[in-house]
Design a protein around this nucleic acid. Structure first.
Lengths: 192, 192
DNA sequence: CAAAATTGATTGACTGATCAATCAATATGA
DNA sequence: TCATATTGATTGATCAGTCAATCAATTTTG
């Protein structure tokens, strides 16, 4: 077998890219810097990812995959609709999502999505998945139209909390998830 | 008098920077591109702003000033606490704020604030002002602790809606402001 | 008032630095 | 030995920033 070398290198480079982006707080990172962190030459990064764009894209993809897995994990454990929503929230606001490197990269990718079509596509996938997870659960609690609306609001709320956490350069506190849950309770209160 | 040439040039360059950032969707704009748009040489941009950073910073500042003026205008017209909150919301979600150029620049600045201390400082000013406007009004409607909490949530909500609008590359619809207002109504419902 | 001097605005040409990307050469392992 | 992994060196492009020179307007002076 072609050995796991290739996969190891890829992972190392993606991890290094993540840390480098986080440290510098922007996408103005050079392939050379990332490669040095990963302990390889810059040329190797090109070899494995075809170029800087490929490496950045793969890094973004990695973030998305991680997020999806955390949420999927939570959903598998959830029995009731409300538990499913909570699973999504816990996934969105889990400690992994608020590691400095992750949150910093995420925000940077938001900016990138404005100019990079592939980046925009990846973020659209994230949004759609988040939305559909929420809607699916909400539909069992409120009328369909409300489910759409509430899911949209929850998504915006989550993104906003993310943004503020990133700007303050600090991990978002536990009160953040409470805030979103309180909003949800507010929306659900008084119904059947 | 030295005529308003200097001020005119500054304004032209800031406007050009805004449009250029918006068109390219990122801060990867060259001084030469901006200057060409403004109809002057790149060297002149350096002359007036001391460098690229200065020009970008001035552009960001311009956005903030515009926003402050719109909100201040609305606040002047507001009589009741609720009207004051609505004024802030209308300012935050006014059509001017959602012109493609503005929203694009705003989002890009969010990313910039991670690596530029002056940029971060400007955004902190925006946040503080927004927060204090909201808290001031809310205090007259709910207990102080709740006022803080609700203002925080409203701020995150607003930022999140902004973010999503920017990512979709479209002007945020009127339903956006309704969504935030509905949340506010929800929080206020059932009180005195 | 007119010539001369001064100041500020503006530019084109240049430079030094930075990087992504390439490639030929070398090492490693099956 | 062949294929894959890996690198150092190099290239070509891109930019921000600098500078000396021009131009226009204003002020000073005789």
């Amino acid at each position: 077998m072609a050995s796991g070398t290739a996969e190891m290198r890829r992972k190392a480079l993606i991890g290094a890219a993540l840390r480098e982006i986080s440290d510098r707080g922007s996408l103005d990172v050079t392939v050379a810097q990332i490669a040095e962190r990963a302990g390889v030459s810059a040329a190797l990064a090109h070899h494995y990812f075809g170029g800087k764009d490929g490496l950045i894209h793969a890094t973004m993809r990695h973030l998305l995959v991680e997020f999806r897995e955390v949420v999927a994990d939570g959903l598998r454990r959830a029995a009731t609709p409300r538990e499913r929503i909570d699973a999504v929230l816990r996934g969105s606001f889990g400690p992994e999502q608020f590691h400095r490197a992750t949150v910093s990269a995420w925000l940077t990718f938001y900016a990138l999505a404005q100019s990079s079509q592939p980046a925009a596509r990846l973020l659209r996938i994230y949004h759609r998945r988040l939305h559909s997870n929420l809607v699916q659960a909400l539909r069992q609690l409120v009328p369909a139209a409300d489910a759409e609306r509430i899911a949209e609001n929850l998504g915006a709320f989550i993104d906003g909390v993310y943004l503020r956490g990133a700007l303050r350069g600090q991990v978002v506190s536990r009160t953040a998830i409470s805030a979103v849950e309180d909003y949800l309770d507010l929306e659900l209160a008084g119904r059947k």
